[in-house]
Amino acid sequence: MLQETSGGYVKSELHKGIATIEFGHPQSNSLPGKLLHELAHEIETNGNEPGVKVILLRSGGDGVFCSGASFDELRSIKTAEQGLAFFNGFSLVINAMRKAPKLIIARIQGKCVGGGVGLAAAADYAIAVESAEIKLSELAVGIGPFVVGPAVERKIGTSAFTQLAIDASMWRNGDWARRKGLFAELHPSAEGMDESINRLAGTLALSSPDAMLEMKKIFWKGTENWDQLLAERAAISGRLILGSFAREAIAKFTSKVKA
């Protein structure tokens, strides 16, 4: 199934019990609102499909895995309600990953920024290349990693999360992300990464669905309030994005990109 929207796409295919969900966008695999909704829908649909045993989440191309929120869409937000609606898209994706009754493997072929770090954190097992640097850049544009924060903090701990959130302009390399627990594996090349992904996905596809479901329930224990929590966090971002600091920062960024 292929869903194209706002210059980007979300597509999924099922092969031997492995559902591969891929998203892509010409602007460094950024995520506009419609793409977030499509991605959440595909994760939920495949998670509830009996023929699916495991989900592989990936992005298109061989560059950036995900650059987070679409700056064009951030610039177009005019009201707190619009801001809430946009950032709630990240809530929908993270909660869909959390509640999916199937284990989710993330294929991280490049840099992760903002919401991209959130996707990697919300996966049950992330496999990356050594060049996959990460950064939570939200504070630099006048907001903060409020929506993705619970997923990132859950995966790497409070100390590492605060380091990422406070120093919003500093890239952390793949080894840092692996040592903190964001990435389960690091590989020198995409070929090695894909070989490991294929091995693990193939093994999980032949494993007990009931056992994996019970494992996932245990892994995510204590997050039962995230539907409400992430919506509240989305409202904070939706309000802050209207501030003068955020407006000016986004304008500077978009003018630099178009220059």
Rank of each mutant, 00 (worst) to 15 (best):
S6Y: 09
G8I: 01
K11V: 10
K11H: 11
E13T: 10
E22I: 15
F23V: 04
F23I: 06
H25V: 00
P26T: 00
L31T: 10
P32C: 00
G33P: 02
L35H: 03
E38G: 13
L39G: 00
T45K: 14
G47S: 05
N48Y: 10
P50C: 01
V52F: 04
L57Q: 03
R58P: 04
S59N: 03
G61N: 09
G63A: 13
V64K: 11
S67F: 08
A69D: 01
S70Y: 02
E73Q: 12
L74M: 07
R75W: 09
S76D: 14
E81R: 09
G83W: 06
L84R: 12
L84H: 12
A85L: 12
F87Q: 00
N88I: 06
N95K: 08
A96I: 01
K102Q: 00
I105Y: 08
A106H: 07
R107W: 01
V117Y: 09
Y125L: 08
A128K: 06
V129Y: 10
S131T: 15
I134R: 07
L139A: 15
F146T: 05
P150F: 04
R154Y: 12
R154A: 13
I156D: 05
A160D: 14
F161E: 03
Q163G: 11
L164M: 09
D167M: 09
M170Y: 14
R172C: 07
D175N: 14
W176D: 01
R179T: 14
F183D: 06
E191C: 09
N198L: 12
T203M: 12
T203G: 08
L204R: 06
M212K: 09
L213H: 11
M215Q: 12
K216V: 00
F219R: 11
L230I: 01
A231C: 09
A231G: 07
E232F: 02
A234V: 02
A235S: 14
I241H: 01
L242M: 04
R247T: 04
K258A: 11
